[in-house]
Design a protein around this nucleic acid. Sequence first.
RNA 1: GGGCCCGUAGUUCAGCUGGUUAGAACACGCCGCUCAUAACGGUGGAGUCGCAGGUUCGAAUCCUGCCGGGCCUACCA
Length: 516
Amino acid sequence: MTADRPFFITTPIYYVNDAPHLGHAYTTVACDALARFMRLDGRRVKFLTGTDEHGQKVEQSARLAGISPQQFTDRISEAFRDMTRLLDISNDDFIRTTEQRHVRGVQALWQELERRGEIYLGRFAGWYSVRDEAFYDEGELVDGPNGRRAPSGAEVEWLEEENYFFRLSAWQDRLLAYYNANPDAVAPRSRRNEVVSFIKAGLRDLSISRTSFSWGIPVPGNLDHVIYVWLDALANYITAVGYPDSHSPEFSTFWPADIQVVGKDIVRFHAVYWPAFLMAAGLEPPRRVFAHGWWTVEGQKMSKSLNNFIPPKQLVDTYGLDPVRYFLLRELPFGSDGDFSHRAMVGRLNGDLANDFGNLAQRVLVMIGRNCDGCVPAPGELTDDDAALLDSARDLLAVVRGHMAEQAFHLALEAVWRVVGEANRYVDEQAPWVLSRKDPARMRTVLYALAEALRHLAILTQPFVPGAARKLLDQLAVPRRARHFNALADAPLAPGMRLPKPEAIFPRFVEAGAGS
RNA sequence: GGGCCCGUAGUUCAGCUGGUUAGAACACGCCGCUCAUAACGGUGGAGUCGCAGGUUCGAAUCCUGCCGGGCCUACCA
């Protein structure tokens, strides 16, 4: 038993410059599935998400909108909270970098780094792009029509700033040693290799303060500077568990995080800077940083020019929440890039969900309703066929658990659906509609085996399609307290239990305008 | 420029350290069933394994070159 072993999982905190879209939904849903899985498996989970609210771009966007940065940030941050409700996200906390607990924690982290001699005051000079909020090397600039530009095409200007620096260069060897000793600390493997070769290429000290804008956390002891947004943002993962009070029960229980899920674009911040900051402050790095891939939409990259960012609300309104969650987790290996298309979405929804799983539940429950007085039937002696089906269902937890330990959602779901397929074959082979006339006792055994298989499937799919799984468990009259993974083996369906009238858990998607 | 990855049935992809007729899912054809959300089950056809060489008794699987596509290469969710 994994009694109460803590599990801390985080999404990135989302930058409030953008409205929530498919990409944010993806990261968040993946974390939610993992968090729900671990809770059902008996772990004590803390699942954190939130918003990143400082920086020059936010300051500018607020000015454009004619409101204060705080008002601006309140508004967008709320949109992300709306998204968690929309997607039925089970986060235990939602942190904002403008909150007092965070500001205090970041300043404490700064002072700790300073005390340990990891920070020094220097000068930074380079080509700066306001739009990108980034400095570029001479060699990175490209020639444009109006002079030299950033690789992104943004205008650049020569800027010299007094900056505080973090001694990142001093951590190169220790980072390499860490990743050698912990080969799974960055996943998937290809990302780890990228990170390692990046570190091997040599690390320069990192500028960690800015004087060109003020919407940020002030540097303790020097109010001309605000703390660089990444040092600010990354720290949310520890300020949310109580840092700087590193002896608090919350902190010692949950830090280091078990897994921090990020998009592949920000893997370097999380796998190079972040562990360096932590080690420099005397703290442990996260156990794993997992970088997932990017979605295209109908074969095209999501971009501002195409304006094809899909709002999560639109997806849920069109397909329903559970189908969207299922699609995101089933369609491609976590870590790979993929394409979101209407055609593929409907294929999964009607194929996997409605036809395979939903219809299986329906045909079994309807037969029970008609032939067993609407009560869980009492089984007789089991045949080898019955036992084979039940064994497959019972073996599923271990298989799924193994895949979830590696964040292989698509394999976990594939394994579950193999049993769905097996159950459908079993229905056809046993033909309970024939048995209802010829051998009612045998029919009851068959329907019991099917109902019990359904119970396993419903319990195991809770992390992925919580709404539909809940409906199915209700229809099987499984009590709320018997829905965790221990109940799989401990609480089989009780014959005689009255079942409610069955109702489709995954309605088919019918194209608008499709003839009747 | 440097580093890394990929190119396998109509489509999306599996094929680990080389070894009998190259697999799955979806789509398609045929058959069965009729409990069910016109769902389910069975069965079948379909591939020059990017191209050209090489190593080997034997390569989709190793090596070289070429063509095509992608990713990383320092402060941008």
